[in-house]
Design a protein around this nucleic acid. Sequence first.
RNA 1: GGGGAGAUACUCAAGCGGUCAACGAGGGCAGACUGUAAAUCUGCUGGCUAUGCCUUCGAGGGUUCGAAUCCUUCUCUCCCCA
Length: 423
Amino acid sequence: MIVKIYNFENMNIKKQFETIKKNTEEVIPEDELLRKLEKSSKTKTPLRIKWGADPSAPDIHLGHTVVLRKLRQFQDLGHIVIFIIGDFTARIGDPSGKDTTRPKLSVEEIKKNSTTYKEQVFKILDKQKTEVVYNSAWLENMKFDGLMQLFSFQSVSQTLQRNEFKKRMENGKDIRMLEFIYPLIQGYDSVVLKADVEIGATEQKFNLLMGRTLQKKYGQEPQVVITMPILEGLDGKQKMSKSLGNYVGVSEMPENIYGKIMSIPDELILRYFKLLTFLKSEDIKDIEISLKKENPKQIKEKLACTIVQDLYNKKHAEEAKTTFDAKHTPGKSLDDRIKHIKPEVKKISPSQLKEGKIWICSLLTTIKATASNSDARRLVEQGAVYIDNEKITDHKSEIALSKSKNTLITVGKRKYYETTLTE
RNA sequence: GGGGAGAUACUCAAGCGGUCAACGAGGGCAGACUGUAAAUCUGCUGGCUAUGCCUUCGAGGGUUCGAAUCCUUCUCUCCCCA
């Protein structure tokens, strides 16, 4: 079917199309995307690619970058990304269940989150080709008659077909009216912005399609919907999300990002390469082959380096690798490891010392290595704590700190701290 | 509007007057092993300078020598009927 649409004189468009389609879950409908690309090229008008974000969480993680990378591809092809910050909807919140995805936020919080959001997003997106808009701009002053009209366009039974709602109904969970209308609001955004394409994760499919539906109702050419796969988290099982703790934030320290990537299960390596890098198809194929021959560790190292490099730069990636190797190469003594690790520096005030000493549990809690004294005590008893490379086994130990020399504290395999004694 | 069921730690889920800081499972953390991961084994998983004490079983009040457990009011949720 689609083959017919390809024209000989339009090789470029076909290439664009293939590039865009790569690694997506679905393009709905494909032929419309082709037509839009053609029209854009003929009229020299860039397409408007919509992407919405909810500023309720201040951090974006690698899971989000799957979509961001796709947007970036559009930009590299000359199109424009419209980045909607859902400040209005964030202000209202979403009281659904326990796993509140949209807590009610104050204006200040939203502002703050939006700022960090923008910073993080532009690690992937091209700033020059991005328009940032806030949905309060049109939602805040919407009149009730406008709302009624909007509501009249969608039926309850249709909304209930949404998978998420279906599941909730089956499991006896509640659904709020508010949640019911969120898709409409999001879809209405597409109408206001006259979006050509909207991209989101597969779980957003229903909402994205609502944009199409509503644009048709309002007499517009409907947007093409592109869904991207949902990235598995570090555990390799569940989707990457902050609340599950299996995520990598794009603003994390390079060493952290590197370390976290190195902890993914082997089965995930190829998928991460596909979704989290811009490698060409040929290179991906090579990786697939070498995964069967080589020790996957080496390939994972390459993956971790590439991701860090994209988010920071090459130098950071190399440093992160050195640090990681120092921490994790077996057989190396703690002494050896420390040489290459930058411990987190923590200040201790002398007023916390008694005769130059501090109780071990109190010390660990003060530098936030542990959540409480009890927690610290447990870790000490389990032999996880080292002070200046010496294992501490007695939870009653008093540690002497001096101004002349910093003290190195190791908790478990991953946490390294250095304390300095200052006011 | 009427009737029924329920709310327990990060999650699921036991407990239904004392022996409950609360069985069990998952998750998490730590130790051993390893490739860093997975798998496996072991320990820990409310707080407190701690063989004891304090706070926690949706919220408040009450009964009792003693409450997660009984009564009562409230809040929230689910199911059935209208």
